[in-house]
């Protein structure tokens, strides 16, 4: 087990290096000279030269690359170009609000989608099944923007059931006051694709021989569905949920932006708007690393769910 984990971590190195090179090329080569962005419209050559020296971009690309790798390893990206806040501070303070929305959201969405998908898969081919699937397709076709605009206007602004936007200091206030509507909207948007996907996972299992065997020996239908079928369909579900976690962090950026939640996603948009390259670089590299680690974690969880899985 330890050997497996070590080997997987070792195999991540080339990919991680690739991400670093990709981000480096994008921002240091394609992006042009950042000194001009930093100096703004009014600049003289001395200022530009000064900024270039500070950033280390008067050095060769190899030296710059080395500086970038050192920054990643030590988690010291210096200060944001637009606010002057240190990047490590930006990352740590923005993670909390993001997770306050994301963790309840992921749990609720997964449980709801599993329950509904299992029900729909059980009555597959029926009118209910077809109606739910059509509703999912139509629901997925409406832009997430429309959901947010309409719900925020109607539920929060018109009816006043929720705060229109904002974020407090205490965790409980955030979770039970400010995060409620964002979670509700993200749930409404996210449930349709998950439901559709999980339904196909269950359909793959529901015609298997062990289901017939279960019925033959007199197991109750709920037991067959919730114990036997669910256990077997759990692997693709876990893969899907785990693989989606890091992108959820970014994917919630629209919600965070609309509701002024000071999370990672909103930070990315702000950084793109302000051409704040160090913030984007740091978030990209760390989210990529998180994605790889979560993939490994998903593989380890297979083993826990299904003892037949051999980790090679």
């Amino acid at each position: 087990m330890t050997a497996y984990i070590l080997r997987r971590l070792w195999q991540m190195l080339p990919t991680m290096l690739g991400v670093v090179v990709l981000v480096f090329l994008l921002f240091n080569w394609v992006g042009g000279d950042p000194a001009y962005i930093l100096a703004g419209k009014m600049s003289n050559p001395e200022q530009i030269a000064n900024i270039r020296k500070q950033l280390g971009i008067d050095e060769s690309y190899w030296v710059q690359m080395w500086i970038f790798i050192k920054q990643i390893v030590t988690a010291d990206f210096g200060a944001s170009w637009s606010t002057g806040e240190t990047i490590s501070n930006v990352l740590t303070t923005r993670l909390g609000p993001s997770l306050t929305v994301l963790i309840p959201l992921t749990i609720l969405e997964t449980l709801l989608a599993i329950g509904l998908a299992l029900g729909v898969a059980y009555v597959r081919g029926s009118l209910t099944d077809r109606m739910v699937m059509i509703a999912c397709t139509v629901g997925m076709s409406i832009s997430i923007l429309v959901y947010i605009i309409v719900f925020q206007y109607w539920l929060a602004y018109k009816l006043g059931l929720f705060p229109v936007q904002g974020w407090g200091d205490s965790f409980a206030e955030n979770l039970f006051h400010y995060a409620l509507l964002p979670i509700l909207i993200a749930l409404a948007v996210g449930i349709a694709p998950s439901l559709r996907l999980f339904r196909t996972f269950f359909l793959d299992e529901i015609n298997q021989d062990y289901v017939r065997t279960g019925r033959a020996k007199g197991l109750s239908e709920p037991r067959i569905l919730w114990v036997h079928v669910l256990r077997n369909a759990a692997i693709p579900i876990v893969t899907h949920v785990m693989a989606n976690l890091p992108s959820l962090l970014i994917g919630a950026f629209l919600i965070e932006r609309f509701f002024s939640i000071p999370g990672i996603g909103r930070e990315v948009i702000l950084a793109v708007e302000r051409s704040d390259f160090p913030v984007i670089k740091a978030i990209t590299v760390y989210v990529a690393a998180a994605t790889m680690l979560f993939n490994l974690l998903a593989d380890l969880m297979y083993k826990a769910i299904d003892p037949r899985v051999q980790l090679k």
């Binding site: 394609v30 890091p246 992108s247 994917g251 990315v268």
Partner: peptide, 17 residues
């Protein structure tokens, strides 16, 4: 390399550049 960066983040990073 391309799949380890979440898609939307990649798009936004390119848009920034």
């Amino acid at each position: 390399v391309f799949t380890s960066v979440p898609y939307l983040l990649l798009i936004l990073a390119v848009a920034a550049v």
